[in-house]
Nucleic acid binder design. Structure first.
Lengths: 180, 180
DNA sequence: GGCCGATTATATCGGGCTGATACATCGAAG
DNA sequence: CTTCGATGTATCAGCCCGATATAATCGGCC
């Protein structure tokens, strides 16, 4: 997930790890945040893999300005990102992954977008049915707080399914337009 | 989180790890699931800490029925659970923790309940404001998908804040009733 | 000119949790 | 009598978090 987000963001421009983390937070901070404790190790992993390189920082006015690193996407890194964009596995419709993938949705191939949205819908529908069953099953005997929580979750699921249906319909309309 | 949930569930009855995982899934599976990959290591951790013990399994009709383990809560385990119930740190109002804590809310002291609900409200309000700002800031230039996602997130946040307000009001009413 | 706090910047470590994978047993249905 | 789904325990690589440490830079204030 973090690898995906980093590669996606580095398409904009080369960046310091620090700035990257800030952009990460701005871009998808409402759904997912990443700590430095995973950012810096991941950056080193991406370096080793050759997806990114360290760019020379302006040595400045004389003495040691180093230890500041600017990371830049390589051609292989762009390929890697395209690969990740084209993959529509379960992680892409999980709670943690879905928001991140949506962030890069306009760069995602149309058929992959479709599979992700449908996967997500399946997932949320399952949750919705689970919650409906839980609420129906007990109705009286269960804990007040649990019931309230399930009620909130149920409504959220219902809304998200509707939201997904609209997105999916829109995608299909777009696709038909392109075909004609 | 898992430690908390295990100790909470073992109040019901001693259980196999397997059954524990099933109950875990039934009880809070709509919001949080735990894999065996964390369950078994955590059980061993709780054993070492003395919060739980292995109960002897019925040796059965002769040959080797072992390798099956039944875990039972100890007095120290109950104390530990009470300790965790009384703690209202940031993890209790995070997305991952809040649902789990709500599950055990009727066993949670009233003042702690209050602090958790208020912490959660603060958290969700922050998200709501962040999303409002993001939507207002760009309105035109931002990605269609991102805007849709933010819209969904905003509505979900608004609903949850309202939901929390009702719960909090109810808590306050209860508290006043008790005082009189 | 000098100080102070906020921001910029990098890094490590312990530990929680996941997903994949590997076993083995048991009851029931075919 | 075999196959299949449920029960049951376990490990491992790897991702990520939260806490923590360190230090340079920049702006503003006195």
């Amino acid at each position: 997930m973090l690898e995906f987000a980093i590669l996606g963001l580095l398409h904009e421009a080369p960046m310091h790890g620090y700035v990257l983390r800030k952009r990460l937070h701005e871009t998808l901070g409402m759904f997912r945040t990443f700590s430095y404790g995973s950012l810096y190790p991941t950056l080193r992993r991406l370096l080793r893999a050759g997806w990114i390189v360290e760019e020379a920082v302006d040595p400045g006015t004389g003495w040691n300005r180093r230890a500041k690193r600017v990371y830049k996407l390589t051609a292989e890194g762009k390929e890697r990102f395209a690969e990740l964009l084209a993959d529509a596995g379960p992680q892409t419709w999980d709670d943690e992954g879905f928001g991140v993938h949506l962030t890069f949705f306009s760069r995602t191939p149309a058929d992959v977008r479709m599979r992700i949205l449908e996967g997500r819908r399946r997932r949320v529908e399952e949750r919705r049915e689970g919650l409906r069953a839980a609420l129906a099953r007990a109705e009286e005997k269960i804990d007040r707080y649990t019931r309230e929580l399930h009620q909130l979750g149920l409504e959220a699921s219902e809304r998200e399914v509707r939201w997904l249906n609209e997105l999916i319909a829109h995608e299909q309309a777009e696709q038909n337009k392109t075909e004609n």
